[in-house]
Nucleic acid binder design. Structure first.
Length: 159
DNA sequence: GCCAACGTTGGC
DNA sequence: GCCAACGTTGGC
């Protein structure tokens, strides 16, 4: 019994980890997520093979820059146990890990960035609740419906 | 359990 | 670099 393919959006600051970095390493453990909602999506929602929109945040032209695939089931984020890591969480133990991640595999880089500005023009079709067009959103991992996925990717060809 | 203080995110 | 939004922490 195979679950139906789901879709997600994952943000990354290109200064920290960009789509080009992912293209180079091919597969990357998505470490450093320290938000419970985002963690829950990775832990409870993601299935191997799901589609990922790779989003660059905190940069000159924020937007969707590539496609990736969920490449592993969720497992504990090792950086939480490492006192030297920026992501260290002293309250987390190996017996009862607090933070989970999935591996993310490179699929392709878009020919052109689907800029947040462009995405905002379609706020109505995407729906008020869509995090990228909602006010004050900071969630770095969230689900995308098949319809939203299709709409967003159709913006690539247009430009 | 409330809520003020604080830290972080991320667009601009 | 600024600052609004918002999640987390900790005192009470």
């Amino acid at each position: 019994m195979t679950a139906r393919k789901r879709y997600w959006l994952m943000k990354s600051e290109p200064d920290a980890f960009s789509i080009d970095d992912l293209a180079k390493v091919k597969v990357e453990p998505w470490n450093g997520v320290r938000n419970y909602q985002a963690r829950n999506f990775m832990r409870d929602g993601m299935q191997v093979g799901d589609g990922i929109l790779f989003y660059h945040s905190n940069t000159k032209v924020p937007g969707i820059v590539g496609l990736a695939t969920v490449a592993s089931p969720a497992y504990p984020d090792d950086t939480q146990f490492d006192p030297k890591s920026d992501y260290h969480d002293p309250k987390s133990t190996r017996e009862n890990p607090r933070w989970m991640l999935v591996d993310v595999a490179f699929d392709r880089k878009l020919k052109q960035v689907i800029a947040l500005d462009e995405i905002k023009l379609h706020a109505e079709e995407l729906g008020e609740g869509f995090p990228l067009v909602a006010k004050g959103n900071r969630l770095s991992v969230f689900p995308v419906t098949a319809a939203q996925w299709k709409l967003l990717l159709s913006l690539e060809k247009k430009s």
